[in-house]
Nucleic acid binder design. Sequence first.
DNA 1: CCACATCCATACGGAAACGGAATCGATGAT
DNA 2: ATCATCGATTCCGTTTCCGTATGGATGTGG
Lengths: 301, 301
Amino acid sequence: MIELRQLRYFMALAEHLHFGKAAESLHITQPPLSRQISALEADLGVVLFSRHSRSVELTAAGRDFQQHAKTALAELDLAIRSTRASARGERGELRVSFTMVAAWILLPELLKAYSDAYPDVSLALNEVLPRDLGPALERGEADIALTFPSSGSKSLCYRALRREPLCAVLPASHPLAAATEFSIAALADEPFITFPRQTAPALHEAVMSCCRRAGFEPKIRLETHLQQTIVNLVAEGLGVSVVPGSMRKMRMPGVAFKAIDRSPPVEYGVIWNPRNENPCLNTFLRCVGVEETGDRGPAQV
Amino acid sequence: MIELRQLRYFMALAEHLHFGKAAESLHITQPPLSRQISALEADLGVVLFSRHSRSVELTAAGRDFQQHAKTALAELDLAIRSTRASARGERGELRVSFTMVAAWILLPELLKAYSDAYPDVSLALNEVLPRDLGPALERGEADIALTFPSSGSKSLCYRALRREPLCAVLPASHPLAAATEFSIAALADEPFITFPRQTAPALHEAVMSCCRRAGFEPKIRLETHLQQTIVNLVAEGLGVSVVPGSMRKMRMPGVAFKAIDRSPPVEYGVIWNPRNENPCLNTFLRCVGVEETGDRGPAQV
DNA sequence: CCACATCCATACGGAAACGGAATCGATGAT
DNA sequence: ATCATCGATTCCGTTTCCGTATGGATGTGG
């Protein structure tokens, strides 16, 4: 059976066309080289070199073998370097799941920084509902999720990356839309558009405490999952809402955003599965400033 | 240093994802397989398989390595098969030199038969003057020559393949052109266009003996090397000539070909260098019906 | 013409690598 | 709790490989 040693020896001899010189370049002596070349020729059943009295030269078949062996060895070298890069998380695939809200504030800058630092990692983006992030990470269908803190499984890790205040959103036609002074308490009697609690418990709690602090319990008229759908419905005049401040970036016509005094911060961050062995996950976490503690503790919710 | 054995073992394990089954498929026991995989991982500095309690699976880097290793092994297999084919003369390059005259009669059928039988041999055709055939073969610049017998070097081999009679060629405007009865003796006083003797001694001798048998010595007006140039000059009315019968195929307007009674045959064949190691030469010779006697005797001239 | 140098092939001995049998340790299954 | 499964480890006999020394063929220079 042919071995790589024989190929390496062959390539050296094909280059030097002299057993002594080739052996020297391989840091071995001449007899082993002679034997390995003979063994290779015997395995192939083909004479690769014609040994004349004063010269060694490649046969036609030898030149053919040299061509192919060169590409085979190059392919093998590529395999080694590529695999090492893969293991270092410098190449491969990272599957990023995110909710639309996170996309507005976190996604662009994080992905820009990461793909600049690791251009050989292909990014597979997938926007999902907040409630689907946890299961996707658990099942290994995604490597990292960008969203608010999740009350998901205890086996996932979470690190906060950004905080921002909430803001009220109301139809542009609403009397309060043009007011210079705004207090959330003014919305006490307005119909609210919110989302189911289990979709994003932390965000839901922030919205609720915002209202309670102003002394009222919101009257919920509609519930839908995605924040941008909420803004869309507000634009249609169906109600008002309280959403993360970065939703302003939507620049949706027909709505007005209003800052909320002493708004509780809503937090965004990354969630991942510590059992995930994708090396690109480590490079990503390092890139976004998460020091890997190595602990596999549960997510901080 | 990585060896092919490790790649083969790796591929088997990557396929079976079970050390016992993979070892069985390799006709070895499990311990050596474990060791070789470990050694491969150590050489790469990369963990290729994640061994869990009840399952073995490829890591991301392992999948990457599998991809590249597969193509590298395929390239190597291609190298082996291609090299063996090369050695059998089933692929490679055959450099065929020939004179124009041989091209009319020998070249098409021989090359058709050969390239049908050996489609992976690329043919490099090169038309040369007869006097250059021998040196080209001697210097290894050509593998085979199609021409008439050469008085060239004693180190070359020759085998006859075809014989044909000579024929006279004269301008269409010549009084003899339309004659039904023709004898070469009628050209005794015509200016002849021939070629230098050393260009093709055997053919030259045949032409001369043709005339002498008719009782005259040709009056040579012009000499040029190539037979078709001779026919061109005859068409211009510069003289007459005696050329191989297959020159009729030129269908040159302005000339008439006349059969010669009891013409001495002119012979065509192949010339090659017995020291030439190109395996395609052997397949070519076998293909055209030359049994290789293995003797390295001089050419039969 | 003969001694010599060059170069590849071959013979032999020690070292390293390999494969096989037995065993260990960990993990699920019954 | 017992057993079965599976990969890792240990130990040993065999094979393979490398290095030194030598052989054999060829070309060179005195």
